[in-house]
Structures are given as structure tokens and as C-alpha cells.
Simulated scan of single mutants.
Amino acid sequence: MAVDLFAGIPVSDYASALAWYQRLLGSPPTFVASDTEAVWELAEHRSVFIEQRPGRAGHAMHTIFVDDLDTLVAQIADRGLEPTKRETYPNGVRKAKYQDPDGNEIEFGGAPL
């Protein structure tokens, strides 16, 4: 069975969120769907999007697993963002959490070293 993922992140201020997510994700959106919605394709058939929805802003929680967590965290730091929390689970899986200005939580996870 093929699986596509289109994960939404409600934000209160589209313009400021757009700038923040460009820093977090390291690129402009893959496409802009409307004046209040932008989409980043992270991998084939796997996308995240921000949409201005002030009443729902701040409640997203997404975790994205990557091959090289340390390199990604360093690249994001070079763009001026630092994790709000880092965690290592007993099985060695690690996570770095980022919070956008609305409080949405975007975590990047990586396999044990």
C-alpha cells in the first residue's frame, strides 16, 4: 500500500511563520498554495504545510526522522534556530525539539549513534 503524508501546522501569522519555517527547513516552500498556505515537500509524497488558522495555532506536534540528526541540528543552528529541548531515549533514539512562535512543536529524530 502506498502512503502519502500531508501534515498541517496551523499558524496565527502567515508571514512570520513563513520566515521561521524557511529557516527551520532550510529552503523556501516547494509551492505556495494560497495567500495563507505554503507547502514543503520533505521527501517524495511526504509534505508539511503551514496555514494561517489563528484559532487552531500552536497545537501541532510533528516528529520527522532523519539520517543524520547532528548535521541537521548544526545546519538549523547556522540559520539561527536552536532546539528548545534535546532528548535521548533508553533505546538510544535521539530527538531535537523546535517550537515556532505559536508554540507548535516540530521535532527531528535520529537513530542511535
Rank of each mutant, 00 (worst) to 15 (best):
L18D: 03
Y14D: 07
F31S: 07
P10R: 06
A57V: 09
V73D: 08
A7N: 05
W40V: 08
W40T: 05
Y98N: 05
R23Q: 13
E37W: 04
G55L: 12
A111S: 13
L72R: 08
A111K: 12
N104A: 11
H59Q: 14
I76V: 15
D4P: 01
S47P: 00
R56C: 01
F31M: 11
A96L: 03
V32L: 08
S47Q: 11
V73C: 08
P90I: 11
Y14R: 10
H59K: 12
A19Q: 14
S27V: 03
F65D: 13
E105K: 04
G110S: 06
P10L: 06
S12R: 15
A33N: 02
R56M: 10
G110F: 03
V73E: 03
N104M: 11
F6I: 06
G110W: 01
A19I: 06
G26Y: 04
R53G: 01
I50H: 14
D70L: 10
I106E: 04
I50K: 10
L24M: 05
T30N: 04
A74L: 10
T84R: 12
A2E: 07
Y98Q: 03
S27F: 02
Y98R: 01
L113W: 09
A77E: 15
Y21G: 10
P54K: 09
P90A: 13
Q52V: 04
P29F: 05
E105Q: 13
K95V: 01
A74S: 15
F65Q: 15
T30V: 03
A19N: 09
Q52Y: 02
E107C: 06
V93P: 00
L113H: 11
W40A: 05
A2T: 09
G8L: 05
N104K: 13
M61F: 07
M61H: 09
V39P: 00
D68Q: 13
V3I: 14
V32M: 08
P101N: 12
H59E: 10
P90H: 13
S34Y: 04
D70Y: 00
A60S: 15
T84C: 09
L25P: 11
A111Q: 14
T63W: 00
V73R: 10
P28G: 13
L24A: 06
A77Q: 14
V3M: 12
N104E: 05
P54C: 07
G92M: 10
Q99C: 15
Q22W: 00
G55V: 13
A7K: 00
E82W: 02
S12L: 06
S47V: 01
E87F: 01
H62Y: 03
T84K: 07
S27E: 06
G8W: 01
G80C: 06
G110D: 02
T63L: 01
L25D: 08
